[in-house]
Design a protein around this nucleic acid. Structure first.
Length: 591
RNA sequence: CGGGGUGUGGCGCAGCGGCAGCGCGCUUGGUUUGGGACCAAGAGGUCGUGAGUUCAAUCCUCACCACCCCGACCA
């Protein structure tokens, strides 16, 4: 092999000690692709979106579709390397699956329709229906089916890190909700429920390790498992203002749940003697607030009637007046798709009077009661007659329900279901989600195995996702100030931002070059601002914007003392360190 | 899918029937140099697309497209 030039990376054989990258990680700003913007593009509002565009981390190609530029890609690689390490450590094996799949595969599980318009669909040249995979349960189950046939092949855990596609109704906030995004998904396969419990717990622990190692503390909360998920499901939430999820948690006992699923303790009302029912005139009083005030009773002594419609049917929902319906819980109870609040017309068609509807004497409509109707007595309810309500309605004396269950939404300040301490609310970003899937996919796709007694059984599955690209955005969402990004050290694109000032001076440039060289040789990842034409202010502002953990300044002023200024991104001001001690000081800051 | 908004140079914006402008960025030369320097000279635009009105359309009308925000939705 004959090289006409000196090798461009003379340190390629040096093994880095502080970096997870095996290749040399040299980068001078004069060479780096991507530039910073003083003003963020107008379309970006969320901090992470604005900073990622301003700092030259990514480039938008379409709504919810972005190209990752070198800095973002380095950060994403660090995240996915941590993910890979922990998944491997937990015994999972990495695979890579196609994004392009036949629609037929999705028809076998019924999810082609279930996903609806969110599923990207296309045709190949032979007019065959194809999809871009939004997730990979079908694909992996199909693959496992062909390769697992005995309990001896189990347990098994396979994972992938790759792009997934969802035609979201509304892409949002840059990488927080994209239509093409990078996701890590792991799928576990077990012979029995106990095995699934173990696989699940291993993944939960791996997730805690991953987020901790990324420098991103998350909370694991109980989550709604949706229509297909099994009984257990947890989300990993990164607290941040821009988050789309609301979490209720108890500071006393640690209970934490997504509001979609959170329950709460409802104080027991004193048992009253049931009084005879009576009608009262309540002209023009349609809302619970009005009725309660008009009759001088607390809202907890009223019952609220709410109507929902789904799949052409009307559902009469009764809940205590001081509570509100959680539509997700309701939807899970009804197992109906397309649930929505019924219109006044739909209500009238069922022979009911909006504003004065009553569960008493109702026929031909499914009645769902929140369990709160059993907590309290002598309620005020509608009389199903314009302008009238009934006093002293009692369950089950005066009305019955087809289902009585928990369909109430929890709110901040309500009592913790476990210890009765008032619950706190936090907004957060869902960065991970684990499910116990059960046998939904294995049954439909025929992924069976023979157990020890020779009996054929469906494999029991779990799935475990981490939004890798979303995690990057979430990290910035949680870690920034008015100057720019504040990267947690483990996922920063580079560890050190080396700023050279007055580089046209030979002595300064020589010192900065040599520090860059030396740190790089020792395995540090250094982004070297070697631009001669930019002023100090520009360089400092770019350093703040890019948000690398450590900033080093080599300048004539510092050089007089044979020193380098060292400043952490979050520190107010830097301190001078002898040139020779720089590496040790930096090491302490990034590890 | 409903409501709202925006499309003019790489980014931020102004212009509003009659020669397409400003700031930043970019190029060249010079002066500067520790928190987004200064002077001078330049390069760069099918004014989102199509149709219509008009002597004349970036501007008015209509349709479409794209992007953003709120909501619905988000296994």
């Amino acid at each position: 092999m004959f090289l006409p030039y000196p090798h461009p990376f003379p340190h390629a054989t040096i093994r880095p000690t502080h970096s997870m990258f095996k290749e040399p990680h040299l980068m001078r700003m004069t060479q780096m692709f991507g530039k910073t913007l003083r003003q963020a593009p107008a379309e970006a509002e969320t901090p992470s979106h604005r900073y990622m565009l301003r700092a030259g981390l990514m480039h938008q190609i379409a709504a919810g579709v972005y190209a990752y530029m070198p800095l973002a890609w380095r950060s994403l690689r660090k995240i996915s390397d941590i993910v890979r390490y922990e998944m491997d450590a937990a015994g999972a094996q990495e695979v890579l699956m196609p994004a392009l799949q036949p629609r037929e595969l999705w028809e076998q599980t019924g999810r082609a329709d279930a996903y609806g318009p969110v599923l990207f669909q296309l045709k190949d040249r032979r007019d065959r229906d194809m999809v871009l995979a939004p997730t990979h349960e079908e694909c992996i189950t199909n693959m496992v089916r062909a390769n697992v046939s005995s309990y001896r092949d189990l347990p098994l855990n396979l994972y992938q890190v790759q792009s997934k596609f969802r035609d979201e109704p509304r892409p949002r906030a840059g990488l927080l909700r994209g239509r093409e995004f990078i996701m890590k998904d792991a799928y576990s396969f077990d012979a029995d429920p106990e095995g699934l419990d173990i696989s699940y717990q291993k993944m939960v622990q791996a997730y805690r390790n991953i987020f901790t190692r990324c420098g991103l503390p998350t909370m694991a909360v109980e989550a709604d498992s949706g229509a297909i998920g099994g009984k257990d499901s947890h989300e990993f939430i990164l607290p941040a203002e821009a988050g789309e999820d609301t979490i209720l948690h108890c500071k006393e006992c640690g209970y934490a749940a997504n509001v979609e699923r959170a329950s709460f303790y409802l104080p027991v009302l004193p048992n009253e003697r049931e009084l005879p029912i009576e009608q009262v005139a309540t002209p023009g009083k349609k809302t619970i607030t009005d009725v309660a005030a008009f009759l001088s009773v607390p809202e907890s002594k009223t019952l609220k009637a709410v109507f929902y419609a789904a799949e052409g049917k009307l559902f009469f929902v009764v809940i205590r007046g001081d509570l509100d319906v959680n539509e997700i819980k309701l939807s899970n109870t009804l197992k109906a798709s397309g649930l929505h609040m019924a219109t006044d017309e739909e209500v009238k068609e069922a022979g009911l009077v909006p504003g004065y509807a009553s569960p008493i004497g109702i026929k031909g409509v499914t009645v769902i009661a929140d369990q709160s109707v059993t907590n309290g007595s002598n309620f005020v309810v509608g009389a199903n007659r314009e302008g009238y309500h009934l006093r002293n309605a009692n369950f089950p004396r005066d009305f019955q329900a087809d289902v009585v269950t928990d369909i109430a939404i929890a709110k901040e300040g309500y009592a913790c279901p476990k210890c009765r301490t008032p619950l706190s609310a936090t907004r957060g970003i869902e960065v991970g989600h684990v499910f116990k899937l059960g046998t939904f996919y294995s049954e439909r796709l025929g992924a069976m195995f023979l157990d020890e007694s020779g009996q054929q059984k469906p494999i029991i599955m779990g799935c475990y996702g981490i939004g890798v690209s979303r995690l990057l955005a979430a990290a910035i969402e949680q870690n920034h100030d008015d100057k720019g990004i504040i990267f947690p050290a483990p996922i920063a694109p580079y560890q050190v931002h080396l700023v050279g000032l007055n580089l046209e001076r030979d002595d300064v440039r020589a010192a900065a070059d040599s520090l860059y060289d030396s740190l790089t040789k020792q395995g540090f990842e250094v982004l070297y601002d070697d631009r001669r034409e930019e002023t100090a202010g520009v360089k400092f502002n770019d350093a703040d914007l890019l948000g690398l953990p450590v900033r080093l300044v080599v300048s004539p002023r510092n050089l007089q003392q044979n020193a380098v200024e060292v400043k952490g991104r979050t520190e107010e001001r830097g301190r001078l360190v002898g040139m020779g001690e720089t590496a040790d000081v930096v090491k302490g800051m990034v590890s």
